[in-house]
């Protein structure tokens, strides 16, 4: 009798779960980092904002699905996608061969070059290996910039940080001689009061094998239907002016980059 009761209970619970799953089927969960302004950032009251978030919202509107945003630490973001915590990563993730072994990417939705920043009184002249020899360079861990810095600046010390905010603190207080990150992220910080300590040294020519063709939307492997939907939506907002509207809200130039 008791066993029969349990089975009945379990069955009804399963049915209930199925029912709610069907009701929420149209909700697409989007994972982003929330610590990478101006692309994605958590506001003081805990909301996500930024270029990535606006683009994601525009894509969802285009695809006519309801989207929900989830903030996730950067170095666990791909495992979280695979574990099903969300269905897509829209977090300025560069499309790289290493990542493509684990996830699928859409076409790029923007592409900006990396750059080097240093304190205002720095004697660093350029962005080559020789210019930075003997210096300590800060980067965010688990990024293409970290991979590029460790591969290129072999005569320098490369220090990985959990988020961009932390290397910014250390560049300001002089523990670091230079930092390497996306030019847009660095410029935004340098223009803010917090970045008054430092200046942009110059842009780095992207290396396709390391930096990839740009930032794309990551989804679980094999979900081609979702990828095609996203690609179509990217093309659509590029065509109907929505992309330009968001672009102009954040930047004075076109972040999409050339057609590649």
């Amino acid at each position: 009798m008791r066993i029969a009761m349990r089975i009945a209970l379990a069955a009804s619970a399963a049915l209930l779960a199925l029912g709610t799953a069907q009701a929420q089927e149209k909700v697409l969960k989007i994972g982003t980092e929330g610590a990478y302004p101006p692309f994605n950032n958590l506001t003081a009251d805990g909301k996500l904002e930024g270029f990535d978030v606006d683009i994601a919202q525009a894509l969802c509107d285009e695809m006519k699905v309801k989207c929900e945003f989830i903030a996730q630490d950067w170095d666990g973001i791909i495992p979280a996608l695979q574990a099903g915590k969300f269905d897509a990563i829209i977090a300025s993730m560069s499309i790289t061969p290493e990542r493509m072994e684990k996830v699928d990417f859409t076409n790029k939705y923007y592409n900006t070059p990396p750059a080097i920043a240093a304190p205002k009184d720095s004697d660093i002249k350029g962005v080559t290996k020789e210019d930075l020899a003997g210096k300590t360079i800060g980067v965010q861990a688990s990024t293409t910039h970290f991979n590029y810095s460790t591969a290129t600046y072999t005569d320098s010390t490369v220090k990985p940080y959990p988020t961009a905010q932390e290397y910014q603190l250390d560049l300001a207080n002089g523990r670091l001689d230079a930092v390497n990150d996306d030019i847009v992220v660095l410029s935004q910080w340098l223009d803010s009061p917090d970045g008054a300590c430092c200046k942009l040294i110059g842009a780095i020519k992207p290396v396709v094998e390391i930096h990839g063709p740009g930032a794309g939307i990551a989804i679980r492997k094999g979900e081609t239907a979702l990828r095609d939907q996203f690609n179509a939506a990217i093309d659509a907002i590029r065509a109907n002016g929505k992309y330009k509207e968001i672009n102009d809200k954040y930047f004075k130039f076109d972040v999409y980059g050339g057609d590649s």
Binding site: D75, P79, K102, A141, N147, K159, P160, Y161, P162, E166
Partner: peptide, 21 residues
């Protein structure tokens, strides 16, 4: 301790994981 950029055993592990998955 990796939070303050000292890459101990756990920090190295996380770096490794983020490259190899």
């Amino acid at each position: 301790v990796a939070i303050i950029t000292v890459y101990d055993l756990m920090g190295i592990t996380r770096l490794t994981y983020s490259r190899t998955f």
